[in-house]
Simulated scan of single mutants.
Amino acid sequence: MKIGLLSSDADTVSLVSQLGYPHDCTHCTSLEELTSLSADGAQLLVLDLDDLLPQADELVELVRRLRPPLATGPAPAVLLLATPAHQDWLWALRQAGAQELLVKPLRRQELALRMDLLMRTAEPAEAQTRVIAAGGFLLDLARLRVTHPQRPELEASLTRKEAELALLFLQNLGRPLSRAFLQEKVWGAEPELPTRTIDTHVSRVRTKLGLQPGHGYRLATVYGYGYQLERLD
């Protein structure tokens, strides 16, 4: 899935990019670039209205074009990031077809929920299983299930964080991943992340996926750095 984001706020860009993983999230710097991305098949557009006040009329027209009332094909979902200062033209945007809005400052869990729901709505029904093959495993990111074609006894349920962490390891076989990288990709900029949170989640992923030498994998600690998943011969 393609996600288009128009915002000049670094924290917003980082947060939306993290929550959109593993989808293709493109940071646009202008309304023209966002229009081009939508024409190229983006399914979700996230618009920070603080960047668009001088272009209010153009934005309303863009949203109206993206979501014509009698559209025969799929239209991108539109999520607005707004403040009370935008109240005068939010109604026009909603009338034009913007489905959702969030009031800034953004709360991570609320943004994650809205984005997930909009992405599921925008995806074609046949694509909503979102099964990704990586490292020999099959990860169903919609149902949060993991299986292995050569190990029929393995079928485990994962939490969202466990699924994101497992995917990072499986897509980076043989590469050491730092704790800072894992935290940024899975937990974002959460300032109060307990020290043992990453270790606990890694341990659960190791157990649920059976990432032990007996199954051909080794998920090991890289002292003073992070973790590395290896696939053994």
Results as ranks from 00 to 15, higher is better:
31 L>D: 00
33 E>N: 01
33 E>S: 13
35 T>F: 13
38 S>H: 03
38 S>N: 15
38 S>P: 01
39 A>W: 07
39 A>M: 12
40 D>A: 08
41 G>D: 12
42 A>N: 03
44 L>T: 03
44 L>F: 08
44 L>P: 00
47 L>V: 14
48 D>A: 01
49 L>A: 08
49 L>G: 03
50 D>T: 10
51 D>G: 00
52 L>C: 02
53 L>Y: 12
53 L>E: 11
53 L>C: 03
54 P>R: 04
54 P>H: 07
55 Q>K: 05
56 A>R: 12
56 A>W: 00
57 D>A: 09
58 E>D: 12
60 V>I: 14
60 V>G: 09
62 L>Q: 09
62 L>K: 00
62 L>C: 01
62 L>D: 00
63 V>M: 02
63 V>T: 01
65 R>W: 02
66 L>D: 00
67 R>H: 11
70 L>S: 04
70 L>H: 13
70 L>G: 06
71 A>H: 14
72 T>H: 12
73 G>T: 13
74 P>Y: 13
75 A>P: 02
78 V>G: 05
79 L>K: 12
80 L>S: 12
82 A>I: 08
83 T>E: 15
84 P>C: 01
85 A>S: 08
85 A>P: 15
86 H>N: 08
89 W>S: 03
91 W>K: 14
93 L>K: 05
93 L>S: 02
94 R>N: 15
95 Q>Y: 10
96 A>E: 06
98 A>K: 04
98 A>N: 14
99 Q>N: 05
100 E>Q: 10
102 L>M: 06
103 V>M: 07
105 P>H: 07
105 P>C: 08
105 P>R: 15
107 R>S: 04
108 R>D: 05
109 Q>T: 14
110 E>C: 12
111 L>Y: 12
111 L>N: 10
113 L>F: 15
114 R>D: 07
114 R>W: 09
115 M>Y: 03
116 D>C: 10
117 L>Q: 08
118 L>N: 00
119 M>G: 15
119 M>T: 04
120 R>K: 11
121 T>G: 05
121 T>L: 03
123 E>K: 04
123 E>F: 09
124 P>E: 10
125 A>H: 08
125 A>K: 10
126 E>V: 14
126 E>Y: 15
127 A>N: 13
129 T>F: 11
129 T>M: 09
131 V>C: 06
131 V>R: 09
133 A>L: 10
134 A>F: 02
135 G>S: 01
135 G>C: 02
135 G>E: 01
136 G>I: 08
137 F>Y: 11
137 F>H: 00
137 F>P: 00
138 L>M: 11
142 A>P: 00
142 A>F: 02
143 R>L: 13
144 L>W: 01
145 R>E: 07
146 V>F: 06
148 H>A: 02
148 H>C: 05
152 P>N: 05
152 P>L: 06
153 E>R: 05
153 E>H: 15
156 A>E: 09
158 L>C: 14
158 L>F: 05
160 R>N: 09
160 R>W: 08
